[in-house]
């Protein structure tokens, strides 16, 4: 599904990613763990097409095709979804209308009929149950006046509505209390199926307890220094990142 090969990227001449290689197969859920500043969010943003980074080397393949030259909206329409670490507030733009615009953009891209406001409202009322969100949030501006937890739920609502095949969750667990985390991960789990892949970026093993990852990667200083099964999360939780501090030894 997603294949990243020796990806190097910098911002303002400073190298952030120093050769990331990663392969996510269809139906798999991968996790990337690592400390702040290790380059995890950069990687997520680059996959989604943010243009503030300069790709100096390497490539990203999605469904076998390089996506580096594609606009963010094209990647989105083809099925890549990023749940933002810091969801953006867009004042005055109605949350439902926004999501409908996104949904219809995808339908147009796929050559399907667009959905009208009334049918979309029915659709969204179904989807919102998955994230147990109060429907008053549908009437507000996009993320306007939302708490941290509500913003993250809203991201998951967008995900289950847009039905991507490759979902990247960037620290979706940060700022969530245990109940909210439960709701969000339930939403993700209900959404999992053999044709969808996930890349979950996190500091903590906590979210992974709910998500049963297939593969765990550890990222330090712009590189993946270790890859393993679900047990790796627990080792990290116990020993901290320090035991991986010197990447060459641990490899």
């Amino acid at each position: 599904m997603l294949s990243i090969q020796n990806l190097h990227a910098s911002v303002n001449g400073k190298e952030i990613l120093k050769g990331v290689t990663l392969e996510v197969k269809t139906g798999e859920l991968h996790a990337i763990m690592g400390l702040n500043g290790s380059g995890k969010s950069t990687l997520a943003n680059i996959i989604a097409g943010k243009n503030t980074y300069e790709i100096t080397k390497g490539d990203i393949f999605y469904k076998g095709e390089s996506i580096l030259g594609k606009a963010p909206e094209a990647r989105s329409n083809e099925g890549i979804f990023l749940s933002f670490q810091y969801p953006v507030v867009i004042p005055g733009v109605n949350n439902t209308s926004f999501l409908q615009a996104a949904y219809n953009a995808k339908q147009r891209y796929l050559g399907n009929d667009e959905i009208d406001a009334i049918d979309f409202l029915d659709l969204i009322k179904e989807k919102i149950k998955l994230v147990k969100m109060d429907d008053k949030y549908l009437r507000r501006g996009v993320n306007e006046g939302f708490s941290g937890g509500e913003k993250k739920r809203n991201e998951i609502l967008q995900m289950v509505t847009l039905e991507p095949e490759m979902a990247i969750l960037d620290e979706t667990d940060s700022g969530l209390d245990i109940d909210a985390l439960r709701i969000v991960t339930d939403g993700v789990n209900a959404f999992r199926n053999p044709s969808r892949s996930f890349l979950v970026i996190t500091h903590y093993q906590r979210i992974l307890d709910y998500l049963n990852p297939d593969v765990i990667h550890v990222m330090i200083d712009g590189k993946i220094v270790k890859t393993g099964g679900p047990e790796l999360a627990h080792v990290l939780e116990e020993k901290g990142y320090a035991w991986l501090e010197n990447p060459s030894e641990s490899m």
Binding site: G49, E73, R75, V93, A102, A105, K106, L162
Partner: peptide, 19 residues
């Protein structure tokens, strides 16, 4: 953010300005 949700820049600007 809008682009990532599949909305192109042109549409996004109109949407944000309308908001």
């Amino acid at each position: 953010y809008c682009n990532q949700r599949g909305i192109n820049t042109e549409e996004a600007i109109a949407m944000i300005v309308n908001g």
